[in-house]
């Protein structure tokens, strides 16, 4: 049976005078890799933070695997923020210790194997690594949890094309039919091959949602082209 992993109804988030999410409705099934696509300031990061339980919505509802946001859902969600929250002075082995302490679903062996394949020493301090390697380490620890919902906020933002391939490969090879992976990005061309579904989000609302191959079949356009077309005619972006 297909289960809904993430469901939002009328989700609203206001930061002082700024309306980041404006009554957003969304449902995501399990077993999918979903692209959360939208221009800057469209509400992608806010939606992820609300889902991860880092923020409380101003209005509306959000559920993960049928449950309201709580410590129970936090245990089901693995979140990669757009900014690093790890200390650069920390050794990688300490980072793994922290994850092991916090998350019972953390597969340390898997993380160590992936880091080994990258030739990243567990004794290295995070701050001593290149930006690309720092991003890879963070992705490795986040993907080494056996979560039901992975939220990856701009995972391929600042890295070179080879590192991008590595990151996408990590996402594909860690794929689990029980889990759903949400990737937010505006580098659509780079991720579109790995997406099952896409969600276009703008000004705090879902503009369009669908299956990636269906768009190509029906319109003969890539998601990248569709994105440019849909967002071209909108004001304020």
């Amino acid at each position: 049976m297909e289960q809904t992993v993430l469901e939002a109804r009328g989700l609203t988030m206001r930061y002082h005078k700024t309306l980041a999410l404006d009554g957003l409705d969304l449902a995501l099934p399990q077993g999918k890799i979903v692209g959360l696509l939208g221009p800057n300031g469209s509400g992608k990061t806010t939606l992820m933070k609300l889902t991860a339980g880092l923020l409380t919505p101003t209005g509306g509802e959000i559920q993960v695997c049928g449950q309201k946001i709580s410590p129970v859902t936090k245990a089901l969600v693995s979140y990669l923020p757009d900014k690093s929250y790890f200390s650069s002075k920390q050794k990688i082995s300490q980072l793994l210790d922290t994850f092991q302490d916090f998350y019972p679903d953390f597969d340390r062996e898997r993380a160590e194997n992936m880091l080994g394949a990258l030739n990243i020493s567990l004794d290295a301090r995070l701050g001593s690594l290149s930006k690309g390697n720092q991003e890879k380490v963070q992705l490795v620890v986040v993907m080494s949890r056996r979560a039901r919902l992975y939220l990856l906020d701009e995972p391929i933002g600042g890295v070179d094309p080879a590192a991008r391939d590595y990151i996408l490969n990590t996402i594909i090879t860690n794929y689990d039919p029980q889990a759903t992976v949400v990737i937010s990005t505006h580098l659509i061309g780079d991720v579109e091959r790995v997406l099952d579904e896409f969600v276009f989000i703008n000004q705090g609302k879902v503009l369009r949602q669908g299956a990636a191959d269906q768009v190509r079949e029906e319109t003969g356009k890539s998601l990248d082209e569709l994105f440019r077309e849909v967002f071209k005619c909108l004001p304020n972006c």
């Binding site: 890799i33 996408l168 594909i172 090879t173 794929y175 091959r193 790995v194 191959d213």
Partner: peptide, 17 residues
């Protein structure tokens, strides 16, 4: 499916299909 998806760098669901 898994190996082919990794080789082709595509979603395993798409490879399966």
């Amino acid at each position: 499916v898994r190996d082919l998806a990794a080789q082709a760098q595509v979603n395993p669901n798409t490879m399966q299909r």
